[in-house]
Structures are given as structure tokens and as C-alpha cells.
Computed example of a mutant assay.
Amino acid sequence: MTINILFAAKAERWDGYEQPLNEALRKALPGQDFTLATDLPPEEVDYIVYAPNSDLQDFIPYTRAKAVLNLWAGVEAITGNETLKIPLTRMVDFGLTHGMVEWCTGHVLRHHLGMDTDILRGDTKWEPRTPPLARERSVAVLGIGALGQAVAEALVGLGFDVTGWSRSEKQIEGVRCLHGDDGLTEALKGAEIAVLLMPDTPATQNVLNAETLAQMPKGAFIINPGRGPLIDDDALLDALDSGQIAHATLDVFRIEPLPEDHPYWAHPHVTVTPHIAAATRNDTASEVIAENIRRSEAGEPLLHVVDRDRGY
């Protein structure tokens, strides 16, 4: 029996995925007939490879479908879809994870070493300085799921004093792991640098606000490659203006592209990057999708299944 796989995403994504996904499926399903296409009769579809900005928003006609396999790490745009009754998986892939690790460690080191002093120098002053060692710098990783854990472990490998925080209890070797509201307060109290890697859920929105920003050491740094709504923008701008926060490096925003008149663009203590911290790579993402289809067909548990109640 042929396995029918619907690719439900924007046309430009199909151009990049058609070849690597076909190749990954052939390797994962040797000898198995399959059809991968962007247009299939709903009642004949077995799997849906999906991007939340797809035109497909009503899953009711897909009566034979076994799973929706999301191409993105973020699933907040689909978890509330009441027509989706079958398992939903999120994208956790090697390329995305390593891209995030590299971006985060780069910006942590930038602020830890004070690189902007020399990179943005506007004078001819010769002012030698000795930055602290990594072991003398405390970094908090807020959100220690798959991406957060990888970032925390990389920072530990560089010698940083790393605290991880999540809403539920976690354990990571070499990382002081905290959880719950009291744990967040404890994590922020010592966080000279905070990296935000939480999902966007009702429980995490505005997790950095006037109250929590005030709990951080004066002159701390914020790095947000997670989700825009994690931060109360007005509160962050106030904290930057007062010097409570020395600098914020932001990769994600409530509205994207970031509007041209947004105060972040012109603020001297904000770095804006255009949602580039971690991108899904077509080849490695295709391997994850193909492996999940193989597992499903073999009766094995799917990888990275979304908890719809938690939203991730």
C-alpha cells in the first residue's frame, strides 16, 4: 500500500524540500511505495508535513491521517486548532539545534568579553582591560528543553557558571537546575547574562517584565532567541534607559518583521537580528520527518510529540 504524504506549506518551502525529503524518505522506507505531493485528496492522506502559515487550517477532511509533522520548532500557531485531533510533532533537528548553540554562545561571549567596546570604538583611546574568566560569569538559560539544554551544556563546556530554569523539574549535568516561580526568582538574582529559550505559551508571556527585570543584577545582559512575547517590551526599554539592563540582543519580536518605527531599532543598547538565531535546514529537517514516518509505520512512538495542554 502506498503511503501518501501531503506537503502543506508555502510554495517556496516546497522548492527547497522536494528533493531532500524524497531522498530522506527513500532511505528511511526502503522498498516502500510513497507519494509526496503538495496536492492530494484529503481522504487519502496518511501524513501531513506542515508549516503553521500553510493555507491548510481545517484538518477534519483528513480522515486517514496519522500525524501532523511540523516543520518548525514553534507550534504555538497550531496547538489551539480545534480541528486537529491526531498527534502533532514539533521540529527538533541537528541543524537547528547547532545553529542555536552557535548563535547563543557567540552572543554570550560577545557580552562576557565586552567585545563591543573595541568593535564599536569611536576614539583612539588605548585602554587595556582584563575580562573575567568564564567561570566568574553567571549565565541563566531560561527554558531548558531540547534547545535550552544544548545551549546550557555548550556554555558549561566553555566554563561558565550556568543556571537553567524551567517550569517543571529538570536535571542536566553541570547545570544548576531550578524550576517554578521561586526558581525563576533565584535564577534571575544571579544572572549577569540571561538567555531566553522558552516556548510562547500563556504561562511564559511577559516572563521578563518590570518586576523580574528588577530582580537581575544591575548591568545585566538579555539575549532572546526564543519568542518575542517572552518580554514586556516597554519594561525592557525602561530597564535599558535606567541602566538596570546594560544591553539586549533580540532575535525575535511580537511583530515580524520588526516595524521600522519600533524603538528597538534606534536604541543604543539594543541589538536587533532578523530572526536568524536558528533556522530549520532542509536536509536535516527532512531526516527528522522521514524518521518519524518510519517510526509510525513500524508501530514505534513518534519523536517530539507536542503536549497540546502545555503548548509545546
Rank of each mutant, 00 (worst) to 15 (best):
S286F: 06
R308H: 08
I289A: 01
D116L: 13
P257E: 08
V49L: 03
D309M: 15
H98K: 13
G159P: 00
R310A: 14
L133R: 13
P229Y: 12
G226D: 00
T130A: 15
T35I: 10
R110C: 05
E169C: 12
K125L: 15
F7E: 04
L29V: 09
I276S: 13
L236K: 10
R121W: 13
I5C: 05
W14E: 09
M91D: 06
T124R: 15
Y62A: 02
V92C: 09
E23P: 11
I276P: 11
G190C: 03
L69E: 04
F59S: 02
L69Y: 04
R308N: 06
N22T: 14
A146Q: 14
A194R: 01
Y312F: 00
V101P: 04
L188Y: 01
V207L: 14
S296I: 00
K218S: 15
V108R: 04
N292I: 00
R310I: 15
A67R: 00
S166T: 03
G219W: 05
Y264R: 05
D123A: 05
E153S: 07
N70W: 06
S168Q: 11
G180H: 01
L258P: 12
Y50K: 04
E18K: 14
P87S: 11
Y17M: 04
P61G: 01
D161G: 09
Y50H: 00
E300Q: 12
H111L: 15
V207N: 12
E136P: 11
V305A: 10
P199A: 08
